[in-house]
Amino acid sequence: MFDWPTFLFSLPLLGKALLITLQTSLLGNAIGFVIGTLIASMQLAKMPLLRRLGGSYIFIFRGVPLLVQLLVIYYLAPMFGLPNLPPMVAAIMALSLCSGAYIAEILRGGLLAIPSGQREAAHLLGMSRPAILLRVELPQAVQSTLPSLVNELVLLIKSSALVSVVGLADLTRVAQNLASSDYLFFQHYLVLAGIYCLINIPLTMFGRRLERHLERSLA
């Protein structure tokens, strides 16, 4: 049933693809975090326009399927007479824009939980608004929402399977290519699922441990 030689032969290829998957997910997550911070602070700003903008961003990027976002990013440039974006760039753009919306929602919750007295105190000390956000509020928000952020990373790694549609040679794409060359669909996809699980399950468990740890330290 399980063709071991084929499996062993595919391992180096899958290993290289795994690097691509991790690269896109992690970069997407990092840029998404920056976008998320920006959007979250926009949502908590006093100016109605900023709040409206932040809200719309989240509405759109959480409301449209990631696959459609990818297609838009990939197909849009040629529409304006530009060459197609390199798949890697399109992939990271889509992942970071989308995860930015989710991370913004997570961080907003964390920022709202910080007592306003802290901001006032920092303000009285003469800290600027961005400095307060970066040095006082963000570290606390990240700490209190770390389990959700880890969970978001897991979701992003899973979502990254979709970047195969723009031709990036990630795990899923390589497995697809292998399967269509030797028709061992089930085996290759099983291995593929196994690799994702090997990354995601430990990460999920780590997130759960963080959560328990957090609960205990708050109790």
Binding site: A161, A175, F186, Y189, L190, A193, C197
Partner: peptide, 20 residues
């Protein structure tokens, strides 16, 4: 845990292409 660890697309491939 296994289903949660696997991308939806991969589950789809497993069932649709791997099922036969």
């Amino acid at each position: 845990e296994l289903v949660r660890g696997t991308p939806f697309l991969v589950i789809l491939f497993l069932v649709y292409y791997g099922g036969p």
